[in-house]
């Protein structure tokens, strides 16, 4: 609503056109995917872009495909489409679940895979799950394409390794995740964002536990996860890994819980996630 009259609206029809515009304007054009995050920022006046680069019209950015053993999610695929996709539910049920617990259906019908990664909001659900599945973000720019692991793509609060001339085009999730869980711990409303989220998966024979919503980026500690390979037995193992995560994470404080509280919950929820994982 606010100041819309002054905003220039760019609506490319192809990826090439979109990348040209991105290269031309860089940060002078704010990229819009689903607009659920940007809408709030603009309505509250935190962001007043002069130019919006809308990706809605770009063809073929919203597909969901299987390639070899892996899953390829188009950047413009909505949360709702991912959550309801038979392919995703069948091969990556925990991922479908992580997308299904975001906000409300109204939001999920708009919010996109690329958007949630590029926004790098610490309190979003999908990034932790994607990181646990060792997913990679494919970005395209004037220099061509490159792949970045999700865990390295998000650097800090609202900060990514995306360059000014680049756009997220897809996300690649390797292999079928036989064992994977996503636990969203909400401290307030059922439609709230997580206070603590835990994604755990067995990928390539190894354990990957990623904790979301507690710091500027998803939290992954390979050394703690490596304990799973030392032949120890659960439930000892789950306790030990959970304890190590709780010690290693420096949580933030916000309206959903203090740092002290989050640390307590991390210890509980990581343990529960591992219990869920090994129960499956």
């Amino acid at each position: 609503m606010i100041g819309m009259s002054a905003v220039e609206w760019l609506e490319p029809r192809s990826l090439e056109e979109a990348l040209d515009l991105r290269a031309r304007y860089g940060e002078d054009a704010t990229v819009v995917a689903g607009g659920t995050f940007l809408g709030i920022l603009m309505n509250q006046g935190f962001l007043r872009p002069v130019r919006l680069l809308a990706l809605r019209g770009v063809l073929d950015l919203d597909s969901i495909n299987q390639e070899n053993e892996g899953l390829v999610l188009g950047a413009m695929a909505t949360h709702r489409v991912v959550e309801r996709s038979g392919m995703v539910r069948e091969g990556w049920p925990a991922l479908a679940h992580a997308f299904s617990v975001v906000a409300s259906p109204r939001v999920r019908n708009q919010a996109t895979v690329g958007g949630v990664l590029a926004d790098a909001d610490y309190a979003s659900d999908p990034p932790a799950m994607l990181a646990a599945l060792d997913a990679r973000v494919v970005v395209a720019g004037s220099g061509g394409r490159r792949e970045i692991p999700v865990a390295d793509f998000i650097l800090d609060h609202y900060t990514t390794s995306l360059e000014e001339d680049e756009l997220v085009v897809e996300v690649r999730v390797p292999g079928r995740a036989r064992r994977a869980v996503y636990r969203k711990f909400r401290s307030r409303s059922s439609e709230d964002r997580p206070c603590v989220s835990v994604a755990a998966a067995e990928v390539g024979g190894g354990l990957r536990v990623v904790v979301g919503a507690v710091a500027g980026r998803p939290q992954y500690f390979p050394e703690a996860c490596a304990l799973a390979e030392s032949g120890r037995t659960e439930p000892d193992l789950a306790d030990e890994i959970a304890r190590r995560y709780a010690e290693a994470i420096e949580p933030i404080s916000d309206a959903r819980g203090s740092a002290r509280y989050r640390r307590r919950v991390v210890a509980v929820e990581v343990r529960r996630a591992l219990e869920d994982l090994y129960r499956e």
């Binding site: 935190f46 790098a120 609060h157 609202y158 900060t159 916000d254």
Partner: peptide
């Protein structure tokens, strides 16, 4: 005591960092 929204504080900082 009610912790206030660092989410908002972090957002502002993040936007400032992101903005040229």
């Amino acid at each position: 005591a009610v912790a206030f929204g660092i989410s908002l504080g972090a957002l502002v900082v993040g936007l400032l960092l992101r903005s040229r």
